[in-house]
Each structure stands twice: as C-alpha cells, then as structure tokens.
Simulated scan of single mutants.
Amino acid sequence: MGPLDARQARSRTGGPSFPLGNRLARVVWQACWLVLARWTPPPLHRWRVLLLRLFGARVGRGCRVHASVQVWLPAQLELGDNVLIGPGAILYNQGRIAIGNDSVVSQRAHLCASTHDVEDPDFQLVVRPIALGERCWVAAEAFVGPGVTMGDGAVLAARGALFDDADPWTVYRGNPATALKPRALRAGAA
C-alpha cells in the first residue's frame, strides 16, 4: 500500500498518490473516527485505543489518545505501553510511525512521515518512517520530520522542528532543532 508512481498516476496534477484500497481504507477510518471517537470525552481513552486497534494500529497497554488527535492511517502506527498522544496532535503517517514505551507527544505536535522528491519533475511522494524511542517527549506544537529517529529519552522542546536524528537523553530546541543539553532523570523517577 505504498505510494503510486507519480508520473503514471499524475499525482502532481491532481491524480492519486496512493492506490484505491488505501484511499478507501482512509475514508472508512476517518468516518469511523469522526462518528465514534471525535466527540468522546477525555476519559474514554480505552475506547479510542480500541478503534485504532480495529483499524490495524499496534497499541500497547495503558495508552492515552485524545479525541482530537489526527491519525492518517492506523495500520501504519505502533504505540508502546503508556504512550500519551495529546489533544490536537497530528500523526501524518503515510510512512510508519513507531513510538516507544512511556513517550509523550504533546498537544498540537506534528509527526510527518513523508516528503516529496524535490528533484523529480513529478514531485514523487517518498515515505520515510519516524521512530521515537522509550521515554521521549515531543513538546507542544513541535514538528518531527520524515525519517527522524529520536533515541531513548530524547526531548524536542515546544515549537521545535527536528529534521535529523536526535541522540538519546538529549534535549533539543529551535528550528532547525539543535542539542541544548543532556537530559537526566532525577533519582527515584520511575
């Protein structure tokens, strides 16, 4: 279910970027999320997680996914245990997005797992998976770009934009994000 060849599909001039089966699956998914989840009150995380699983997402135990979250295609999503996806977060997972245990994607953060080949005259869509390790934090309104891997414990500060891999246990900020300082958990932290 990867992207179509842009030249044959004429994607740049209005043709589809994905096969019909993918597009139909997304229409059904978006309709179900709108009708069955989008309006639900905050405490109904288990219900929303169940819907994600029914559409192919791999979701660990204890995850919290808010009703206003946008997931492009659940089958391309993997959440470890105790992951929090905050209000208004966008998981634009044309490519796979995997988020490790105990990680947080805060409100209105945006993870984008695709881009285009800027040297291709047909602007071919290119999917590039995103991977967040365990105990990562993508803070409010931050952006994680295509193909990025955040090592365990990495943090991207509010409104930061990360286009390259993040080292483990390091705090990043800015646009483009640069390393600010090492991250260390206080003694006794679980």
Rank of each mutant, 00 (worst) to 15 (best):
M1P: 12
M1N: 07
G2Q: 13
G2L: 09
L4T: 07
A6P: 12
R7C: 05
R10P: 06
T13M: 04
G14Y: 05
G15N: 12
G15M: 10
S17L: 07
L20H: 14
G21C: 03
N22C: 06
N22R: 11
R26H: 03
V27A: 11
V28C: 10
V28L: 15
W29M: 10
C32W: 11
L34K: 15
L36E: 00
L36Y: 00
L36S: 00
R38Q: 13
P41N: 08
P42E: 14
W47I: 06
R48F: 10
R48G: 09
R48S: 09
V49M: 11
V49D: 07
R53Y: 06
F55E: 07
F55Y: 12
R58A: 07
R58T: 13
G60R: 10
C63D: 07
C63T: 08
R64Y: 09
R64V: 07
V69M: 03
A75N: 08
A75I: 06
L77Q: 05
L79E: 03
G80T: 10
N82S: 10
N82V: 02
L84Y: 13
L84E: 03
G86R: 03
G86A: 05
P87L: 07
P87I: 04
G88V: 08
A89D: 08
A89Q: 10
R96E: 09
I97G: 01
A98M: 06
G100E: 05
G100P: 08
N101L: 01
S103K: 06
V105Q: 02
V105D: 01
S106C: 14
Q107I: 01
L111Q: 03
D117A: 15
V118G: 04
E119S: 14
E119Q: 14
P121A: 05
P121Q: 06
D122H: 15
D122P: 02
F123D: 10
Q124F: 09
Q124L: 03
L125H: 04
V126N: 02
V126W: 00
V127F: 00
R128C: 11
P129V: 02
I130F: 06
A131D: 05
E134H: 12
R135I: 02
C136Q: 10
V138F: 00
A139L: 09
A139K: 00
A139Y: 01
A140C: 13
E141P: 02
A142P: 01
A142K: 03
A142R: 04
F143V: 14
G145T: 11
G147I: 12
G147N: 04
V148L: 06
T149V: 11
G151A: 07
A157E: 15
A158W: 00
R159F: 04
R159A: 14
A161C: 13
L162C: 10
L162S: 10
L162A: 09
F163A: 07
D164N: 12
D164W: 03
D165A: 13
D167L: 13
D167Y: 01
P168V: 04
W169Y: 12
W169H: 08
V171L: 15
N175C: 13
N175Q: 11
A177G: 11
T178F: 00
A179S: 13
L180C: 08
K181P: 00
R183V: 06
A184T: 15
A184E: 15
A187W: 00
G188Y: 01
